[in-house]
């Protein structure tokens, strides 16, 4: 089995890498794929809480690398979705505990058993980033429509290119259609125009994301706006042609209608 190894990265912190990893991974598992999520943020692990698996951690990525347990022992099976596994990161260590070469080795082992391996990258461009991208073939770059996040995303894209990545896709997170309509937020077209990589998904700003994180259950597949948007991302990863939910246009249509009334 040749698996897809994808790193989810952004440069800037807090733009939604972990949420994206959790939702994309869960969505793929719901389609019947065998998915392994790896939290590579050593010292600041988060993916386990977002997935609601924090109480089941025994071993972690650093234990695997140091040989204190077998890979299988560190993999937590998500009982709610068949074929979904999490490799948690270590909370009490720092990123120097892992090297890119060791990451490649772990991923090589996992490749035999999984359709998808999704790596949640830490913020920043230091060793944690190098570790996370070492074993991946393609990248999902997450950004929000803000200058700071876009600047960091541009830097990350440059670094990924320098590391030989040819397949990079963009997810624009926390888009607020009403602000785009007002001209107070960059639209998805603006962001794609600036960053110049293919768009994989537009996730609207949705309070249900906070609720689902509170509950430790990713919202992909639910009827909430973000749940639908993540479901589309998963479909596109699987090669389906799914049109983008165009929040901006559907609202500008209303704006046009109200505009007519104003004129009358």
């Amino acid at each position: 089995m040749e698996s897809n190894v994808i790193v989810v990265t952004s440069g800037k912190g807090g733009v939604g890498k972990t949420t994206t990893t959790a939702n994309v991974g869960t969505g793929l598992a719901k389609l019947g794929k065998k998915v392994c999520l790896i939290d590579t943020d050593i010292g600041l692990r988060n993916l386990d809480v977002v997935m609601g698996l924090e109480n089941r951690i025994v071993y972690n990525l650093v234990d695997v690398i140091e040989g204190s347990c077998r890979i299988k022992q560190a993999l937590i099976r998500d009982k709610r979705h068949q074929g979904l596994y999490l490799m948690p990161s270590a909370q009490t260590r720092d990123k120097s505990a892992v090297s890119p070469g060791q990451m490649v080795k772990v991923i090589e082992h996992l490749k035999e058993q999984f359709d998808y391996i999704i790596l949640d990258c830490p913020a920043g461009i230091e060793q944690g980033f190098q570790n996370a991208i070492a074993g991946a073939q393609r990248a999902i770059v997450v950004t929000t429509p803000e200058v700071s996040a876009i600047r960091d995303a541009d830097r990350i894209i440059g670094l990924l290119e320098a590391n030989g990545f040819s397949q990079m896709d963009l997810i624009i997170n926390r888009l607020r259609p009403e602000m785009v309509r007002r001209g107070d937020m960059m639209s998805s077209d603006d962001v794609v125009d600036i960053l110049g990589i293919p768009l994989l998904g537009i996730i609207p700003d949705d309070e249900n994301v906070v609720i689902s994180t509170n509950q430790g259950e990713p919202l992909v597949g639910s009827s909430s706006p973000a749940g639908l948007a993540y479901n589309n991302v998963v479909g596109r990863l699987e090669g389906q042609e799914i049109p983008f939910l165009n929040f901006e246009k559907s609202i500008s249509f209303f704006a046009r209608v109200t505009g007519i009334f104003h004129r009358v």
């Binding site: 803000e146 200058v147 876009i150 600047r151 541009d154 830097r155 440059g158 785009v180 007002r182 001209g183 107070d184 937020m185 960059m186 639209s187 603006d190 600036i194 704006a255 104003h262």
Partner: peptide
């Protein structure tokens, strides 16, 4: 929108785009 047009103010989206374009060139 009407107010923005009325005062001929640049939208903050346009300001962000202009700033980013220049910033990214020197970054790159």
């Amino acid at each position: 929108m009407r107010f923005v047009n009325f005062f001929k103010r640049k939208s903050s989206c346009q300001v962000a785009k202009d700033r980013l374009k220049i910033l990214l060139i020197s970054d790159r």
